[in-house]
Amino acid sequence: MLKRRHSPLQRGGFLLVCGVVLLVASNFVDELRSYQGAQVAVYLVAISSIILLTGYSGQISLGHGAIMAIGSYAAALAFTLWNFSFEFAILFGMLVGTLAGFILGVAAARLSGPYLAGTTLALAVGLPSIADQFKVLGGEQGLNFDIGDPPGWIKKFEGSDFTQYKWFFWLMAIVALFVIWAITNLLQSSYGRNWRAARNNPVAASLAGINVVRGKVLAFTVSSALASLAGALFGILLGIVTPSAFPLALSFTILTGAVLAGVGNLAGSIAGAVVLVAIPEFSGALATHLGSSQKLTANLPGLVTSLLLIFVVLFKPEGLLQKNRAKSIKQLNS
């Protein structure tokens, strides 16, 4: 339903139906599943930011975890220090993340492949340590980002047993669906077309009158806006924003999700997000099944993730869910 032949309204309708189904379904699952559902929604937003950047604009970022941290910290600061309501705190986080992304994007547009990867990697390693430098960021203890109970009108509407995690799930699922709708439309507009053109052949694109550099900066900025949104939601879900919540591994995790989804395929990002959340659960169960020794439980998730990554890169480079897409891409390229 997210194909090019459908109009934005049709896609909107489809996603609206998805949303209603999800929200109704949330009444039939327990707390843990609601939490995991919210987690999937957060990963979904983060993965789509990578897909937009790498799949459509052809830039690599190993530092999107750092941009998530920027969004998360800005939102938490606005929430605790300046008493913003949480909606405006999220928006403020996005604003700061977008600005940071714009500055980074201007630098990134000059760099190619591995040079960009190295720069963003350095950012991902270096940035979380800023929290120790400024008192206002709370050091290792971090910032409180507890948005409290669900608002009154929802409780009135859904009954008083409406739990916090279910509220998080509602909030984040709605945001994620809206993000998917917005990005699908963006990618099918002239902007998305220009990004693809500039990725496939920068020289030809600039001869056709496309401003390649401006497109790259714009893609990085939009991608950062999404990543910081994901960061702010992640902060809300954790209830607290700490430097250790944004390790280098987070940047790699969302990159993994994007690869599992197939980097050029937005619809696959849902599968990618689900797999990311399912891996720890699945490998936990497997470890118990194999006799849960310390070594096994500590290393099985990593083993499963890495094997899956290698398998996908070698055998299903267009993503887990895709069939015969490689052929059509080959035809397009030839």
Partner: peptide
Amino acid sequence: SGPIAEIAPVIATLGLLGLLQS
């Protein structure tokens, strides 16, 4: 070819990193 061609080596070696470490 395809959108993954550029990041495939990065992903593959990251996967190897995780594999060897586990």
